[in-house]
Nucleic acid binder design. Sequence first.
DNA 1: GCAATAGTGTCTGTCAGACAATATAGG
DNA 2: CCTATATTGTCTGACAGACACTATTGC
Lengths: 243, 243
Amino acid sequence: MIESEADYLNRYDPAAFDRPSIAVDLVLMSVIDGLPAALLVRREEHPFAGSWALPGGFVHIDESLDDAARRLLGDKAHMADAYMEQLYTFGALGRDPRTRVISVAYFALLPADRFAAALRADHGLTLARLRMDEDGNVAASTDDGNGDTALPLAFDHAELLSHAIRRLRGKIDYSPIGFALLPDRFTLRALQDVHEAILSVSLNKSAFRRRMLDRGWLEPTGERVTGSSFRPAELFRFRPVSS
Amino acid sequence: MIESEADYLNRYDPAAFDRPSIAVDLVLMSVIDGLPAALLVRREEHPFAGSWALPGGFVHIDESLDDAARRLLGDKAHMADAYMEQLYTFGALGRDPRTRVISVAYFALLPADRFAAALRADHGLTLARLRMDEDGNVAASTDDGNGDTALPLAFDHAELLSHAIRRLRGKIDYSPIGFALLPDRFTLRALQDVHEAILSVSLNKSAFRRRMLDRGWLEPTGERVTGSSFRPAELFRFRPVSS
DNA sequence: GCAATAGTGTCTGTCAGACAATATAGG
DNA sequence: CCTATATTGTCTGACAGACACTATTGC
């Protein structure tokens, strides 16, 4: 089809049209105490003052989306790298009441120890436990010492979290992304705990071991956990290539 | 974390920053003659003059991404509705040599007859056959009467097509999206042909029938194909709810 | 030996692939 | 009856869930 005149003008004089702002929001995830968790920031200003939001920021004109996500990972979570994947782009009209903002959501998977380090390094971050109900709705809460306190979520960020958990659930069984949630060396029980937390089901022990070992992703280190008062478990390492 | 001043200013004065343009590109797909197919537009101007591109356009300031995709479906493919899904957002720096454009790709699935109708209605559209090699690279070609002629693809649109085929491959076996590629009533053989074209493998006939019938998605109509000189196949209908 | 968890073995049901057998339309 | 495709039936191997059993550590 011949390009219409409107398209032609639009392409060659893009400044003639109002343009949305483009942001990247990060779902920084881990598994903490048997539950999926994410890092949130408390909003101090309107709109949604007092609610919690995902860390994010605008995309600069001279950086790719992936670069923007990596930059924000460093700025907000104080780490140089992590497993990261683009999730979905949110572009509804009223999602930010101030102005038109389209957000490209990324999610990053972090081992629990690096998650804890980010929380120590930046006291503006809050550790949120995530629970998804049968309808796919996600609620965030935090342990404030007296138990579980709900954290109201700003913007459409509950929806972003829901997408992140569903993506993770869909991929964890057939892709090696689960290993990004564990330290370098880990036991099969720790791996199973991560899978159970993400999927929110309990898995059969021997079937899980069989399946994981048959995948060819696990390399026995020969080392074992120390300090247990019972039979120590073997430590495994993730082996990236299976061919 | 307290919002940084830069973020604050950015949020409240977004015009102070250069902003990328936001486009939506459509991967309009079907299965034609046993191969996945897409509708392309020939580019008459630089850059990529003489190459083929996916139909697309800019997102207006007062419409959501989904609305923009639906609008373009009507403008470019002349149809009111189709199964449509957001695919991925492409934001590399040099992807459009003229200016910074971020493209949100959507894909739509169309039955072969509506695909053919779009081609008749709009002679600017070209039917492209898609072939994906082992590395996931997609090549487009067309049947110009003398056989298969390659169609060079503009921008990063080969990558968009690759994402579309991979998404389709990943979902067709466990979700009912395959039915969006078939007319209202269809035979099990036609359904199998669609699956084989998408997955680029040949499937076992009885196992396929068993699996599909067990899914609970198929409703026998009691009617049969007419005009065959052999045993006529039964026509089925897709039944959306399985509960 | 006891407690507690790691790790193994075996049975069974489900399901997909292979492939043979039967059914039915037009001619 | 013949041809060509539709449809069904059966065997078999792969694999996951259930669950019991064995192994090993500190005390």
